[in-house]
Amino acid sequence: MRVITHLLQISSADPTPESVPIPLNPADTSSTQAVAPAPENILDTLQAELIVALVGVIVAGLLVMWWQLRKNDFSLQSAPKRPHDFGLIDFLAVFFLYFLGQFIVQQIAINFIGINQDTQQFDFASDSQYVRFNLIGQIVTYIPGILYLLGRCGFLKNGLKQFGFIPRKPLRDIKLGVLGIVISLPLVFGISAIMVIISHLLGENVPEIGHVLLQKLADSTTFEIPLLLGIGAILLAPVFEEIFFRGVVQTALLNMLGKQQRWLVIFLAATGFALIHLSALPSWQPLPSLFLLGLIMGYVYEKTGSLLPPILIHMGFNAFNFSMVLLSATAKGA
C-alpha cells in the first residue's frame, strides 16, 4: 500500500474529475503542493521502492500488451464499418451544442451563484454546493449533443450499431474493456512516474492532487461529496466523454481523412482528449498520460466499432483513481 501511495497522485478532466495519476512527491506528503527537491538529490528523494515499482508497472503493462497482441491482429485493416455520412457538419453541430450547454451553465452560475469580486470566481457557499452544481453542469453540457447524436444515428441504416451505441459483441466488448484496464493502469502510472521524475530533475513543483474536484474529495467530511463526485467521475464522465471523443471526433475525422488514416485519426482524437483537460490541470505532467490513455481507448474503439470497451476502460481507470484519493483521505483522517 505504501508503494501505491508514493506512486499515485490524481488529476482529472474538465468539467469532471477525470483521471490521470501522477506519483506523489515522497519528500512532502503533508501539503497538496509538493516542493521539488534539488536535482542532485533526486535518487535520495525517490526511494528505492518507488524506482522498483516504476519499473515493475511499466514492464507488467508491456508484458500484458505483448501477450494479447501476439494472439490477435494488431492492424486496423479489418476494422468495422462506421456511419459513412457522419462528417464535418455533424461534428460542428455536436460541439456547438456542447459549448451552448457550457454557456447555459455559466449563465446559471452567474445569476444564481454569483461571482466573488476578490477572486473573480464563482462564489459557492460550500463544497457541497460546488459539487452539486458541477454535476448538474456536466449533464447540461453533454446531454444536448448526445440527444442530437441519437437522433442522427437513428435515421441512418444500422446507425446506432455502426456508431457504437449498440455493442456488436457484448461479451467480447466487456472482456476487452477489462483487459484494457489491466493494460492501461500500469502503463499510464509508469508514464506518470517518468514525468514526475523529469519534473524533479528540472526543479519543477509537482502538485499532490491535480484537480479541484479531487481536492474536494480529499477534504470532504460528508457522504454527499464522495457520492456525487463518484457519480460524475465513474458513471457519467466516461460515458459522455467516450461518446464525444471516440464516437464523434474519431468517426468524423475518419470520414474526413479516409479509412487509410485510422492511426492518424486515433492520434488526433487522443491529442484532443488530453488537451481539453488542460484547463483543469495545475501542471503539464498529466498530459502524456492522458494522451496514452486516449490512444488505448481510441484503438479499442477503432478495432471493435463499439463504445462499450473504451467506456469500461475509462470507468475502471476513474474508479481506481477515485478510490485511491478516497482511501488516502480516509487514512489521513484516521
Rank of each mutant, 00 (worst) to 15 (best):
T221Y: 08
D14K: 09
A79F: 11
L187T: 12
A270T: 02
G137Y: 15
N116H: 05
L92K: 13
I225L: 13
Q77M: 12
F320L: 13
V212Q: 14
F273N: 03
L160N: 07
F74M: 14
E49M: 11
P167C: 02
I296C: 07
L92D: 00
Y301V: 13
I104N: 03
F163S: 01
L179C: 08
F133R: 04
V57H: 05
I183T: 02
W284V: 13
K259L: 11
A53K: 06
L295M: 08
P310G: 03
F244D: 00
L214V: 04
I10D: 09
W66L: 11
G177A: 06
D90R: 13
P226L: 00
L275P: 12
L312R: 05
K81R: 12
T32R: 03
P282S: 11
M1W: 10
G316K: 00
H211F: 05
R132V: 09
F86D: 04
L287T: 07
P286I: 02
I311L: 00
V249Y: 14
Q138F: 15
G230A: 02
H211E: 01
V178G: 02
D28K: 04
P309W: 01
L135C: 07
I209G: 00
I191Y: 10
L149F: 03
A36Q: 01
S11D: 08
Q47M: 10
I198S: 14
A331P: 05
V178S: 01
I139S: 04
S323Q: 02
A93T: 14
P167H: 00
L236Q: 04
A93I: 09
S289D: 06
P83F: 06
F99H: 05
V94Y: 09
G316I: 02
G151Q: 04
K169C: 03
I4F: 15
D73E: 12
F240T: 09
I110Q: 13
G56M: 04
I108V: 11
L227C: 01
P226T: 00
L235S: 06
L202D: 13
R262Y: 06
S323K: 04
L135I: 11
V265E: 02
G101I: 05
F317D: 06
L217P: 02
E49R: 10
A48I: 05
S184G: 03
L214S: 05
E241I: 10
Q121L: 15
